[in-house]
Amino acid sequence: MACLLAAAAGYWVLGRGTPRPTGTWAMGALLASFAFAFASYSPLFEHMVEAVVPHVARLLSNSASLAAATSVLALSFQVNLQELEARRRIRLRLALLGASVLGMSVLFTWEQLTHRSPQIYALYLLVFISYLSFAIIDFLRQALEQSKSTRRSSVRIGLRTAAAGCLFALVYAAYKLTILFSLGLGFHLLSAHSECSSFVATRCIFSVDSPALAVLLICLGLTLPAVVYPITQARRHRWEIRSLDALDPLWQDLSAAMPEIVLPAGALDEEPATDADFILQRRVIEISDGILALRPYRSQHVQDAAAQSAGRATGGNAAVVEAAIIEAALASLQEGQYPNEIAPPSTTDITVRKDLRADVHWLLQVASAYTLSSAARVAEGGKPEQTGV
């Protein structure tokens, strides 16, 4: 766990490139703190440091846990609040962190000088649990609030995963609080300094398994959006390229017949030519403008015949009817003849669709039907019509 977290911290700090995204350093500090906390549990590290200062591994581990909790809050503040407000809250949490670590260090030294007094250790736990619980509850509240308002599903799932990690962290805090009351009241319900024997032992479930699961879920939840984003972008880019290829035959015929629908060169052309999203938006606008320009040539007779042939003109059949109308309208435009009765616009006109993906989805259906119609004419031995100029 320590090695994985250290590698993840290195990626966030060294592998993010420039300019660094908001929260990069907070995320790196979070992962590094957790890595150090788990490293302090290893026998090798513990024996090395405790050969110098007895029992100091506990202080280092607890201090790293508080630093990690503070890093979680800092990351949350940086991505959810305005810069000035985020800095103000982070400074306050850092001051509380410094005071808590200083208090724990003083109490740890006092405890060692008094031969590990249970009462001093109870005060030490009080400082540790107080700040840790405060940080966990603070982040849990923010994670739940932000998960309700975010639009990205990866962020929403990640925040809820981190919130689940906070619940395991609260289980660990409750366990430490039980030890605190046991020591303070002299009940000695749990031995404060006993070691775990296995991961399934009752004591280890609360003292080791719960914080391990908390760290895993919180780190996974906060990292998930960064991992999912490039995958989502790659899938979107592939969809855009395929959509451009599918729309090309329809666009070619419309732009050849009506060159004026092609957007003129200007500021928009400063965008990279390889930006598929930009090009796809242009294609949607130009095809929609072409369909709009063909309104005087839309034949009601063609619409009725196509609807009768395709069945009820709803769902996918509506695209077949629209493709037939566009094909006939292009031929009428070339011949300069208006139909006797003009067909109304499609019920799925561009004005009632809400976003680019919805526009593309509809036009892809129309373009597919248009391409199949043209291919069918060629397969039947018909001469493909040159609808352009």
Score class of each variant (00 low, 15 high):
S207L: 09
V200E: 08
T387H: 14
V228K: 02
T161G: 10
L4W: 14
V262W: 01
A162G: 12
A64T: 07
L185D: 09
P230E: 13
Q142N: 10
G315D: 12
S65W: 02
W25H: 13
A226Y: 12
F36W: 07
L159P: 00
F199H: 10
T232D: 15
A310P: 03
E46H: 03
E46F: 02
F108H: 09
P21S: 07
R353Y: 02
V352G: 06
R93Y: 10
I342P: 01
F77W: 13
Q146E: 13
R91V: 11
P225V: 03
W239F: 11
S154N: 09
G184M: 13
L92K: 09
H237A: 12
I342E: 05
Q142W: 11
P21E: 06
H237W: 03
L356E: 06
A51S: 14
A257C: 03
H188W: 09
T347M: 09
M27C: 06
S288W: 04
A367F: 02
L66T: 10
S255C: 04
T387M: 11
R377C: 07
E286W: 00
A257F: 00
A99M: 12
T314S: 09
G336C: 05
L356F: 02
L220K: 01
V302W: 00
A95Y: 07
L66Q: 06
Q308C: 07
I287E: 00
L4D: 03
I342V: 15
C219A: 15
Y297Q: 05
E240I: 12
S147D: 03
S191Q: 11
A2H: 10
N62E: 14
A257R: 02
K176F: 04
A143W: 04
C204Q: 05
L220G: 11
I241A: 13
A67R: 04
S194P: 00
T22D: 10
V215F: 02
I218V: 15
A375E: 15
I350W: 05
R242W: 01
Q281I: 11
F45P: 01
R116A: 08
Q365C: 07
A169D: 05
E83Q: 12
D275K: 07
V79M: 06
I129G: 06
T223H: 04
K176D: 10
K176W: 05
F206N: 01
A35V: 08
P249I: 06
